[in-house]
Design a binder for these strands. Structure first.
Length: 493
RNA sequence: GGGCCGUUAGCUCAGUUGGCAGAGCACCUGACUUUUAAUCAGGGUGUCACAGGUUCGAGACCUGUACGGCCUACCA
């Protein structure tokens, strides 16, 4: 018994055989197209607006997306990445070879067409096809034309079908590309140098996340995929590049959710002689400029709210904000146990493994984060949870660090970088002891980074921005998988 | 990791109380010289996710598995 899809494939195979039997190559090497479909429509408008511009023959190419036969004539739509255009085929005006080929044409095939542009009586821009070429025969049927492809699993696993069938998907990824371009322009204009640093690292530092491990055969050595860009970029600040950034993929071997993908794109930038106040201005200006450049506005819709990205963003103290939303002033509970007890009073389920920094983090994500819909900077984090940030001049229990939130999501993290090599070493050691005490996996200390710091790093403001989340924000998507072309999924058996 | 929901034709989806497996699109055949999800006539091509169980009889009920979605947990 043949399945339906086998039968369709069989029919297409027969068409392919017929086409080959006519001496036609169904997969030729190239096609010279003179215009995109978008350019062709602009050209038609130009012809119509002028009595001197004569209709000329143009060559277009694209995928056949619709066929409306009407006896001796047929209307087909082809799509290319610029848009779509209608084609008009008149069977009596086609060569014998073209007519035979036309009969074996399917929706999904890619063709090149030449002819003159005109408008039908319903004023649809149309190309009257004088000659056409098969550029690629499709053996699989496309998803349905009206509903598109809505099976979310299939959209991710066969993203090409999602892109063919759903124009909104295409728009999201065009915008993602534009966001990244706009960020590059913004930073380049401000004198930042774009650099590339290693993905494979002997120790994964700069953040606290479980890394992926891999192995280099020739060196017979394990490597980690990077979990942050931080430590290498700071080496470059030490090396004398005053403003550097990297837009790169990082990898964290942790949970997958609507806001987490195991590999994601991070922007990190470092600016010598700046502190976190300078970085704050940069972030709000960058995000608002990028939004204006791409959406034409800095007021965006996200999750049913209108977010105003125009600077200045609200700046609020972490301590006061936690107190405001949870009633807990963590300053009054300087050790882990007293803070945990206070959290238990609120009937929070508190993991006894968590240290003070992680407890505070839990307070942020439970009470604060969902409330930060308008873009907001949360300022001055406890030193316990920020080993790479410099303490405040007047309070060595807090560091000059901020996180930026919008739409209830964390989108950026930044601090005045710790540049005292002795203190940095102590912080790493303290962190390692705590990890060990908790019986958790201990990251090796990046000794080479500590050595670099000993040569002297200027005061520096550092920034990390989750690009995927920023794109979610600007495109109004609630799931990170909608803004990653090929999100991580379990393999189908 | 836990909870809830989903998986039926290539795609989008129906399928009632357990009683012959359905529709639209796509595809095939035919008609049609300006259509726009063209229209009209005819054609159903299926491992009902997978494996068991209950039953005279299971797409439907029960158990397990896989994959996905949402929530939750984890997450600098």
């Amino acid at each position: 018994m043949t399945s339906r899809i086998d039968r369709i494939a069989q029919q297409r195979q027969q068409k392919l055989d017929r086409i080959r039997a006519c001496g036609i190559n169904p997969y030729p090497h190239k096609y010279h197209r003179s215009h995109t479909t978008h350019q062709a429509i602009a050209l038609l408008e130009q012809q119509e607006g002028s009595s001197t511009v004569e209709a000329t023959v143009v060559n277009l190419a694209g995928r056949v997306m619709a066929n409306r036969p009407m006896g001796k004539i047929s209307f087909l739509d082809i799509h290319d990445s610029s848009g779509k255009i209608q084609l008009y085929f008149h069977k009596e005006h086609l060569s014998e070879e073209n007519l035979g080929l036309f009969k074996d044409l399917d929706i999904g095939d890619i063709i090149g067409v030449s002819g003159k542009l005109f408008r039908t009586k319903t004023s649809e821009p149309t190309l009257e096809v004088e000659n056409f070429t098969l550029l690629a025969k499709a053996l699989q049927p496309l998803p349905e034309k009206w509903h598109g492809l809505s099976d979310i699993d299939k959209r991710y696993r066969q993203r090409y079908l999602d892109l063919i069938a759903n124009t909104e998907t295409k728009e999201i990824f065009k915008m993602r590309s534009q966001v990244i371009t706009a960020i590059r322009q913004f930073l380049n204009q401000r004198g930042f140098l774009e650099v590339e640093t290693p993905v494979l690292q002997p120790s994964a530092g700069g953040a606290l996340a479980r890394p992926f491990v891999t192995h280099h055969h020739t060196l017979d050595q394990d490597f980690y995929l990077r979990i942050a860009l931080e430590l290498h970029l700071k080496r470059l600040i030490i090396g004398g590049f005053d403003k550097v950034y990297e837009l790169g993929r990082i990898f964290r071997n942790e949970g997958i959710s609507t806001k987490h993908n195991p590999e994601f794109t991070m922007l990190e930038s470092y600016e010598a002689y700046a502190d976190y106040n300078d970085v704050m201005s940069t972030v709000e200006e960058m995000v608002s400029k990028v939004s204006q450049q791409i959406l034409g506005t800095d007021k965006i819709e996200f999750g049913g709210n209108t977010l105003n990205l125009k600077p200045p963003w609200q700046r609020i103290s972490l301590q006061q904000t936690i107190e405001k939303y949870s009633g807990i002033d963590f300053k009054k509970y300087p050790d882990t146990d007293s803070l945990r007890n206070e959290m238990l009073k609120l009937k929070m389920e508190v993991d006894p493994q968590k240290d003070r920094g992680r407890l505070i983090d839990e307070l942020i994500s439970t009470f604060v984060e969902p409330n930060l819909v308008q873009p907001t900077f949360l300022l001055d984090y406890p030193v316990d949870m920020s080993p790479l940030a410099k303490t405040k001049p007047d309070d060595d229990r807090l560091v000059e660090r901020f996180e930026a939130f919008a739409g209830g999501m964390e989108i950026a993290n930044a601090f005045t970088e710790l540049n005292d090599p002795i203190e940095q070493r102590q912080r790493f050691l303290k962190q390692q002891e705590e990890r060990q005490a908790e019986g958790e996996a201990v990251e090796t200390i990046d000794q080479d980074f500590l050595l670099a710091l000993e040569y002297g790093m200027p005061p520096t403001g550092g920034l990390g921005v989750g690009i995927d989340r920023l794109v979610m924000l600007l495109t109004g998507q609630q799931s990170i998988r909608q803004v990653i072309l090929f999100p991580q999924l379990k393999e189908k058996p």
